[in-house]
Amino acid sequence: MSTITGERISYLRYEKDLTRDELSKIINVSKRTIVAYEQGTREPSLKTLRLLVEYFNVSADYILGYTNKPYCLDTILKEEKSFIILPKTIQESQTKYNSINDYISFIANKED
């Protein structure tokens, strides 16, 4: 387990002047879970990590300890020139796949 992640969550909570109980309600976990995160005995799930990123407006890399710079999520999104929007459902994935496949077939069969 990573104590860096716990230290970051504790620091971010302190910076927002939140109690463990308040943060637990914001990200929909128990107060005991917040304690476990901060003590480094438990890691947040991907869903919880996303909630922490969005609430504290920092990158996941910062929370996980991969960088020491708490980049603002808003800034990262503004600076991104292009990014891939992933499909939200399997059906949406299939629809996008079919569209791409149809386009490739069209280009491949196009007469010059």
Rank of each mutant, 00 (worst) to 15 (best):
L12E: 04
K47F: 14
I104D: 13
R8L: 02
F83I: 12
N101G: 02
Y14V: 05
T75L: 14
F56C: 07
R13M: 09
Y103D: 03
F83K: 15
L73N: 07
F83M: 08
Q91I: 05
F106R: 10
I26E: 04
D112W: 08
V53E: 12
K110F: 09
C72A: 10
S10C: 07
N98C: 07
V35A: 07
R42P: 00
I9T: 00
R50K: 15
K16N: 15
K81V: 09
R8G: 01
I85D: 10
K88W: 06
I34L: 04
F56T: 00
G65F: 09
D61W: 08
N28C: 12
L12T: 03
I27W: 00
Y66N: 15
T48E: 06
Y55K: 07
I84K: 06
S99L: 13
F83L: 14
D102Y: 07
D112P: 05
L51K: 14
Q91H: 08
F106D: 09
S59L: 08
Y66H: 14
K78V: 07
R8E: 02
T3N: 07
S45W: 01
L12G: 03
N98M: 12
L12F: 06
S105C: 12
P70Y: 05
Y103T: 12
Y71H: 06
I84Q: 08
I100A: 10
D102M: 13
L77G: 02
Y71I: 09
P87K: 03
G40P: 04
Q94R: 11
G6I: 01
P70W: 04
L64I: 11
Y97W: 14
D61N: 14
Y11H: 03
E79D: 11
I85A: 09
N98G: 05
L46I: 08
I34R: 00
F56D: 01
L46R: 11
L73K: 14
T95P: 01
L12D: 04
A36Q: 04
K81C: 14
D102E: 15
I100P: 02
Q39T: 06
E38A: 02
F56E: 02
R13H: 01
I107K: 13
K47Y: 10
A60H: 04
I63N: 00
S59T: 14
F106K: 13
G6R: 00
R42Q: 13
G40C: 11
D112S: 12
K25E: 14
D102P: 05
S93V: 04
K69W: 08
P44N: 03
L52Y: 02
T89P: 13
V53W: 02
N68I: 05
P87T: 09
L77N: 12
I76S: 05
Y37L: 03
K110Y: 15
V58D: 00
N109A: 10
T67G: 10
K81Q: 13
D74P: 05
Y55C: 13
A108Q: 13
E92F: 03
N109G: 15
L52A: 02
S2M: 07
S2W: 05
S82M: 08
G65S: 10
G6W: 00
K81G: 11
T48V: 10
E15A: 12
I34Q: 00
T95L: 07
P44Y: 01
S10H: 03
I85K: 15
V58P: 00
T33D: 04
I63C: 01
Y103M: 07
S82D: 15
